[in-house]
Design a binder for these strands. Structure first.
Lengths: 235, 235
DNA sequence: CGCGGTCTTTGAGCCAACGCAAACGAACCC
DNA sequence: GGGTTCGTTTGCGTTGGCTCAAAGACCGCG
């Protein structure tokens, strides 16, 4: 139980809170380990727990009305899963699946709500997190609504580099396994289109990809592709 | 000043709050009237005020990196404009423009923040509003990522009917002026495509449209179009 | 080491949606 | 009442991205 306390206390999420409250939160949490592809919860089931990712990555997907599932967002260490659903009793709005081995901090929503009630400062903190999620979602909405596929992918890659980039000799590695299928679901495209675009960029030396693996080698060029007014149609 | 108090007190946004707090909020608000096409604020400028729509409609747009602006959402009476940006000093993430004559309740963010600090119950209320906005945004993201244009438009229309539908003899009227350009910006499409689809549906008697005007005549059929597995390709 | 499953690549064909251009029509203003 | 503006319609040509099919690479496992 002291493990998660240590982990929790390092997180920027709670940085604004007084120590006593940080400890109270940490004390109330339990841990849950996930293996790759394990589901945390499924769309539609009651939200009985609030989860915070401590390590690993979790994807939030929604199957919508048709077609293959869409990835709403990838949740990185230090971020909550469906924080909003913890405020009042409700059902999950998406399915959460671990992309790789992961560890979560878990609070029963009942407990969580009473903690928040006792320590109102937390609520301010949470509202700001929600606001961040919201503007993030809006940003991605604008992207998908106004950019063509290559630019959407470029943006997605850059975001991943910021959130999960690990420096290496040859470039910056995306630090968790991500299939092209996933990348497609993240950008509202098909697996095939993603593959074509990635191999094109690979040939140009922008990046190197393997099985569920990505290494970005030329960030400026990628940024340029993401921002450029005209779509680059060269081979 | 008693005008906005009356207006504010009827809003469901504040229904959970004690009367005294409702009155305190109402007392601190001032009013602002807008004419059609008037801008409330512009993307990037500092968020000095928090606005609540009392009557009329306001669109939130973001011009993004390219192409014509995207409509993030249409704000109806009883809803806030960029509520999240009022929590801490920040800049607006979108441009707000009145679609028709409108009246807003306005709080300087300074004042608003001190009100919230004094009455922590409000914060819970706000967090829930943010959560609603968030799941709404996610829903629209899934839509645009996984549905073809006709279905996206059908969904948008149904949402508008729910939020701004006024019953009439011939059907349900969308109760504010909305151009096909706007509808395109709302669904991530072009003006032309929207026009073609609407005229097709018009011929089938699903709806009737005029200059910035929409009358939905057959909701079940529209719902069907929105949900159906196969795209309907008939004339 | 060989097998099966998963992930990726590539080709060929097609169609929904886009871009542009131009005409049309309704509302508004002098 | 006539002109101007703004919104809508329609045609036509183009194409980006999807679909389907099939082969290829890589991994883990027994």
């Amino acid at each position: 139980m002291s493990i998660d306390r240590d982990l929790l206390l390092g997180l920027s999420v709670f940085a604004d809170l007084p120590f006593s409250e940080q400890h109270a939160l940490a004390a109330a949490a339990s841990l849950r380990s996930l293996q790759a592809n394990e589901a945390v919860f499924v769309h539609g089931e009651p939200a009985t727990d609030l989860c915070l990712v401590l390590s690993g990555r979790v994807k939030l997907t929604q199957s919508g009305w048709a077609r293959d599932p869409v990835i709403l967002r990838i949740v990185h260490p230090g971020e909550f899963l469906e924080l909003g659903r913890s405020l009042r009793p409700s059902r999950h709005g998406a399915t959460a699946t671990a992309l790789c081995g992961a560890v979560l901090a878990v609070w029963p929503t009942q407990v969580w709500r009473s903690l928040v009630r006792e320590m109102p400062a937390i609520m301010t903190c949470l509202a700001q997190l929600l606001e961040q999620e919201l503007s993030d979602a809006q940003g991605r909405f604008v992207e998908i609504a106004s950019l063509d596929v290559p630019r959407r992918i470029a943006h997605a890659l850059l975001r991943l580099v910021n959130q999960a980039g690990r420096k290496e000799a040859a470039g910056i590695r995306i630090d968790f396994p991500l299939s092209q299928q996933d990348l497609a679901a993240l950008t509202g495209t098909t697996l095939f289109t993603v593959s074509r675009i990635l191999t094109r960029w690979e040939r140009r030396g922008l990046l190197a990809g393997g099985r569920r693996t990505l290494l970005v080698r030329d960030i400026p060029a990628l940024t340029n592709l993401a921002t450029a007014a005209e779509t680059d149609r060269s081979a």
